[in-house]
Simulated scan of single mutants.
Amino acid sequence: LNPEARAFDASFEVLSVEEAVRVTGRYAPLADAVRELIEATILTEVDGGVVDNARAAIEGVTESLRQRTRSAKVSYRVDGRPLPLGNAAVGVCNPIAPPIVVHQEGGGRCWSEFVLGLAYEGPPGLVHGGVSALVLDHMLGEAASEGLSKARFTGTITVKYLRGTPLGPLRSEAWIERHEGVKVFARGTISDAAGVTVEADGVFIEPAWARDGQ
């Protein structure tokens, strides 16, 4: 195993661009359907018989999908970068991820526009504060790692909530502020149409195995 694989107790499989398109094309729509199911589950007021039938159908589908699974410790890479299918923020095959699509501008700066629906609610009509922190942790990490091209992980993150973040369409931006040795300092925000709702500062660390190969 390479140092990264040892650090994560994981194995990495390299996919071609064509293979990655095939994998995401097959399984991402399934995750989209489950996201729709999650929201329907939150809102439904159907009677008990319909609920019982739905539960039985869902349990049957779950068992069919378990007929063939990959190891949870297998991760994929495409063109030398991670393809985080199960990531809680950006994993296109993870139904609990919005998912966020991150656009890199270069120079340690990135942005994303996305929608957070009822599955991410905290106070009525507002995004849960922990979800905002999740989004910003990932966005700052994308900036600090220059698009996941360098191994830099969250050391600390400080989140400041300026006001409630409404459910619906949002935008997040993140950028590198400075470097200090193995530390990268990054900042980021979440905004709605009226302006910034949450901001964060983070320190990201380059691990020893990435610095010296140990």
Rank of each mutant, 00 (worst) to 15 (best):
R187T: 00
H179V: 13
G202Q: 04
G107F: 05
P123C: 03
R211Q: 10
R187A: 04
R187G: 06
P95L: 00
A193R: 10
D137C: 08
V34S: 01
V159H: 06
S71M: 04
P95I: 01
G213N: 15
G202V: 02
A57R: 09
G130E: 04
K73V: 09
L43T: 08
Y27N: 08
C93F: 01
P166Y: 06
V78F: 07
V17Y: 12
D32A: 12
H103W: 13
E142F: 14
R70S: 12
L1Y: 15
N87D: 11
K73I: 07
G195F: 06
G181S: 13
Q214P: 09
I157L: 13
V184K: 14
G86F: 03
A10C: 04
E45N: 08
A174H: 04
G130M: 05
L167G: 00
T156A: 12
G60T: 07
E121I: 02
N53Y: 09
L148C: 10
Q104Y: 11
S145F: 08
L162C: 07
D32T: 11
V92C: 13
A89Y: 02
N87Y: 03
R163A: 15
L134N: 14
A89L: 07
I38E: 02
D201A: 15
A186S: 08
G122M: 01
S132K: 00
S112L: 03
R55F: 14
R171A: 07
E177P: 03
V61Y: 13
R55P: 11
G164V: 06
P123G: 03
L167C: 01
S71D: 14
L136Q: 10
R22D: 11
D52C: 05
V198Q: 00
E19P: 07
A119M: 01
A28L: 05
F185G: 13
V184W: 12
Q214G: 09
L162F: 11
A210D: 07
E146D: 11
A33Q: 12
V184P: 14
F185A: 13
E45D: 15
I96Q: 06
A20H: 04
G155P: 11
E18D: 14
A119H: 01
S112W: 01
A194S: 15
E146S: 11
